[in-house]
Design a protein around this nucleic acid. Structure first.
Lengths: 113, 113
DNA sequence: TTGACACATTCCGATATCGGCATATATTGA
DNA sequence: TCAATATATGCCGATATCGGAATGTGTCAA
């Protein structure tokens, strides 16, 4: 047996810094591969391969325009990440609440003394 | 040259499904290693190693209690992820806005005909 | 049809990562 | 001190991943 993580989910897709860079540059809008290559100073095959991974998890889609391929961001496919994070927001808020309770308790103790 | 991604940042730390499982089980509160092992049916070394990675990026902290080690979730260290996601929320909303504009335009055209 | 351009794919070597197993370390209790 | 318990670490083999270089594929323009 060996590693069990794959590139087959959003979490792994965005684990790679270059892939996040590519997504970041696509926020500005649809772009052909060549534009990404010059924007980020990466090699063309490198960009194509990363785009493939991103496309497999749905984070980007592409359409052909002549001999160019325009890639577009699909931000809704970040939903699994957002959903996962939401659970921790709650944990975070609960900690703040407990902290708040504690502070108020301290304050009441101060008043009664 | 070879792979450039490391286990040294939050994005990579949560890319591993088991590590997300471990974080999930810690939402309920501080736990010793053994509890995580039985909760998730993983081997003890496996859990210890994943905890090490999580601890290196600050997502968990530990304190000794006798011969046990209690691990605690540090949800605030998910901030980089949250920050990164926020940019895409904006892109997502802008798309919705454009969609809305488009729909209203369609509606106006319908009225004038 | 041919050449140039844009991009995708394949093959490769280097390396990182995962899990299993064995073992080290530390703490407790007898 | 010694055995038992709880956890961490080291070593290993299998495999996944990355980047580079070369090459394949498709499209346009002359």
């Amino acid at each position: 047996m060996a590693r069990s993580s794959t590139t087959a989910d959003v979490f792994n897709a965005i684990a790679e810094a270059r892939r996040r860079d590519i997504l970041d540059t696509l926020i500005a809008g649809e772009k052909p591969v060549g534009a990404i290559v010059t924007d980020l100073s990466l090699s063309q095959p490198q960009v194509s391969k990363h785009l493939r991974v991103l496309s497999e998890v749905g984070l980007v889609t592409s359409r052909a325009e002549g001999r160019r391929r325009l890639y577009r961001l699909e931000p809704t496919h970040l939903q699994p990440l957002q959903d996962w994070l939401t659970k921790y927001e709650q944990a975070w808020n609960e900690r703040l609440d407990r902290m708040d309770d504690y502070l108020q308790e301290l304050q009441r103790e101060g008043e009664t003394q």
